[in-house]
Simulated scan of single mutants.
Amino acid sequence: MGLIIFLVIGLIAGVLASYIMGKKQDLLLNLLVGVVGAVVGGLLAGLVGLGATGLIGQIIIATAGAIICLWVWQRIR
């Protein structure tokens, strides 16, 4: 059950990040960006002492991580 929730949070974060960054992507790529962003956002939030409480907090952290991932990907390309 935890993996399914993690994937749903990643999908929501990927869709939100793609809209915020103005990048139109398909569903699978949004899921990938969101899941990687959730991991990156969780690591960065832990480094600065922030914690995500509840579903909304997890989505916010994952979206911030996904935005960072998309921004880095744009700079690399």
Rank of each mutant, 00 (worst) to 15 (best):
L50T: 03
Q58G: 13
I20N: 08
I76N: 07
L29F: 12
G22T: 12
R77Y: 13
L16F: 14
Q58C: 01
R77W: 15
A17S: 12
L29S: 11
C69H: 02
V36G: 02
A17L: 04
V48R: 04
L3I: 05
L32K: 09
G41L: 02
K23N: 09
A45K: 05
L43Q: 11
V39M: 11
A52I: 03
M21P: 03
L3G: 04
Q58K: 12
I12M: 08
A64E: 00
L70W: 04
G49V: 06
I4R: 05
Q58T: 01
G14F: 02
L43D: 04
G54T: 10
D26R: 13
V72R: 04
G46C: 06
I56N: 05
W71Y: 13
A13M: 12
L16Y: 11
V36F: 13
L7A: 14
G54D: 07
V72M: 14
G42E: 03
N30T: 06
V39C: 06
L27H: 06
Y19P: 00
A52G: 15
V8D: 03
A62Y: 04
D26L: 10
K24G: 05
M1H: 09
K23F: 14
G46H: 10
L47I: 14
I61H: 06
I67C: 13
G65W: 00
Q25G: 01
A38K: 03
A64L: 09
D26Y: 13
